[in-house]
Design a protein around this nucleic acid. Sequence first.
DNA 1: CTAGGGGTAAAT
DNA 2: ATTTACCCCTAG
Length: 301
Amino acid sequence: MGAPKQKWTPEEEAALKAGVLKHGPGKWRTILKDPQFSGVLCLRSNVDLKDKWRNISVMANGWGSRERARLALKRTQPAHKRGESSTALSTISQSDEETVDPSPLAASGGPSPTDGPKRAIMRLDNLIIEAIHRLKEHGGSNKTTIAAYIEDQYWAPPNFKRILSAKLRHLATTGKLIKMKRKYRIAATSKLSERKKNPSVSLREGRQKISRRIDCDDASEKSQIDLELTKMRRMTPEEAAAAAAQAVAEAEAAMAEAEIAAQEAEAAEADAEAAQAFADAALKMLKERNTPQMNVQMIHA
DNA sequence: CTAGGGGTAAAT
DNA sequence: ATTTACCCCTAG
């Protein structure tokens, strides 16, 4: 039967991250029930959230997880067994048994110069999308402009242009971007509009057991929390505080705007919600970096 | 309900 | 052929 597969949209991912930042890791049901995110995540179950978070964590971590290593290695190299059962005591060092299993958020603990070019590439896709979005150029933006924007707004690794070229080409071939005469435009098809426009929800109707779909009133779709959070992750505390303050201001402005313009409240409300979510999350993160909620992860600063 | 293990279709 | 990303299942 047809469970074609539901890819996670950046919006859903952003909502998940924001939710984790707000309620803490684990509280999947809470996040799902939160009206702030239920709109975006109404198609996902709590288990889905958990699974996706696991994937994201493993990705961001870079490969610290042992289970992944074991799983990856068991197929690739079944030939050699790592027998430490024999009298080998000296080889322990600090390889296995890591003291931390940091969530992706753990990276926010250390804006220090120590974790510089370690893993420079995170979500270049979103960065590109955002760049094109913000540039608002008719017919799209060319590579140089996009590169300039990103290099200006963030920091760029030395080989950034090459990476960007590859990524742009890839995004174009996969249909996420449309390349026209040296300019890149965001594809209208696929992405959110794909699932948004046609209620093909019935495809996966037969199997909602208990905790499927609490509230399916999707209103907000336009959130760039992910990007903001990613950006913030590299900031110094002072910069983060400033960003948080600005986020609060933006949230208030967006809310006020939403109140006035009741006609097209949908878009404005979505913006307001997104901004509010980010503001909440940002403040929470700043004030409670070492709370029992977020717990052990952030050891070194 | 959540954490973890495992399977598999899709992507590279 | 291998890796990735979703999804489901089961134990705690």
